[in-house]
Design a protein around this nucleic acid. Structure first.
Length: 257
DNA sequence: GCGACAG
DNA sequence: ATCTTGTCGC
């Protein structure tokens, strides 16, 4: 089937309009968040994509549970349309979590942008609206917007070193640029049901020195990647992925040191 | 026309 | 995202 890019973009315009409204009134505050779910996808030559949903407890700093989904990505990668490729797999991974775990998740962190997107509908926006849950994006590279760097440098890490403003509406702040300390930057933007200020605070709260990515996303990244490679090498069969996950949680200290 | 372009 | 050797630095 041929994918009609213009149709998908039109759909995103509506998604984006909705998202901008939800982002004004945050459903959560930084202090009310106890559990954060990180979402990421890795690719394997044999089974396509492997998505992981890693639930992280802010208080203890520990991994609580993990959901996994394996399958072919919906479409090829097109800048701006990442959500149509990866969101279905991420959504499935989240739903693989036990219901009692899903219900305690306060906010979702997605590898990619939120409203810092040409149509204000990055993958974190799609996920947040689909799950009807606060979601924000954490990207390693810029996609859209004008980067305005802060005058004053900062010494504490992570910290805000700049902002992402909308080229078509400079008074609208779409996201923030954070620095992890080693000079590596991260782009944070609200996805849905959370404002920028809260999003920044949350990311800083779950990011530890030594790791560029917030821990929930870091865990999701490491797990999805290890599963993808294990499936490729034949070390793991697709039927025993569930057991592999449980085993992984048990010895997380060894895998995520 | 030219440059930008998440994962 | 993924493909990959050696190499710079703590």
């Amino acid at each position: 089937m041929v994918l009609d890019i213009s149709v998908l973009k039109t759909f995103q315009v509506r998604i984006g309009e909705r998202a901008l409204k939800t982002v004004k009134a945050s459903r959560i505050s930084e202090s009310s968040v106890r559990y954060v779910c990180g979402l990421d996808v890795s690719y394997s030559g044999k089974v396509g994509g492997v998505a992981a949903a890693a639930v992280f407890e802010v208080g203890s700093g520990k991994l609580v549970d993990v959901g996994l989904a394996v399958g072919e990505p919906a479409i090829e990668y097109v800048p701006g349309l990442l959500a149509f490729r990866e969101a279905p797999l991420l959504y499935t991974a989240f739903m693989k979590l036990p219901e009692e775990v899903r219900n305690i998740v306060d906010v979702v962190l997605v590898d990619g942008h939120g409203i810092a997107h040409p149509r204000y509908s990055g993958i974190a926006t799609h996920i947040g609206l689909a799950l009807d849950m606060p979601a924000l994006g954490v990207a390693k590279r810029k996609l859209y917007g004008k980067i305005v760097l802060e005058e004053r440098p900062c010494s504490e890490f992570p910290c805000v070193v700049g902002w992402i403003e909308d080229r078509r509406n400079p008074s609208l702040l779409l996201g923030a640029v954070l620095s992890s300390g080693t000079g590596s930057k991260l782009y944070v933007s609200p996805g849905a049901y959370v404002d920028l200020k809260t999003a920044i605070g949350l990311v800083m709260r779950v990011t530890s020195r030594g790791h560029r990515l917030p821990l929930p996303i870091y865990y999701a990244d490491r797990l999805s990647r290890s599963v993808a490679r294990a499936l490729d090498s034949g070390t793991l069969s697709i039927e025993s992925v569930a057991d592999y996950v449980q085993n992984t949680i048990a010895k997380q200290s060894r895998l995520f040191s």
